[in-house]
Amino acid sequence: MFDITHQPLSIEPLVRAVTRPSSGAVASFLGVVREQTRGRRVLYLEYEAYREMAIPKMREIADEIRGKWKVDEIAMIHRIGHLEIGEASVAIAVSAPHRHQALAACAYAIDRLKEIVPIWKKEVWIDGEEWVGPGTCEHH
């Protein structure tokens, strides 16, 4: 399950989609809109995607994961459009026979998604705005 949607996200459908009889663990990640970023107060975010490239890049990340860890299934959904503080922008779930693979693969998935999947967010603050795109490090 790899998708880009305007609809609100929840993690449960992804967890259900990846769980297999062989799965002993499902690791999940939900990225949510934070009120403060780099010391500024965010009013809302606007996400935009190059959908025709973004979904194949998600599949490519899943292929990379399968080359590194023994996992059962991988699901990634990114939301686009207008998002308010506290809303989920991205949901990822990875199932595996054992927890270490599931946890490592899930962490890898979100890091790679931010590096190579062409999705941008415009942060709109009280006193300005800025686009943030793939390959941008965020350590704050």
Binding site: P134, G135, T136
Partner: peptide, 8 residues
């Protein structure tokens, strides 16, 4: 594909 913009 702009990684990051200058802020306005």
């Amino acid at each position: 594909i702009p990684p990051v913009s200058g802020g306005t």
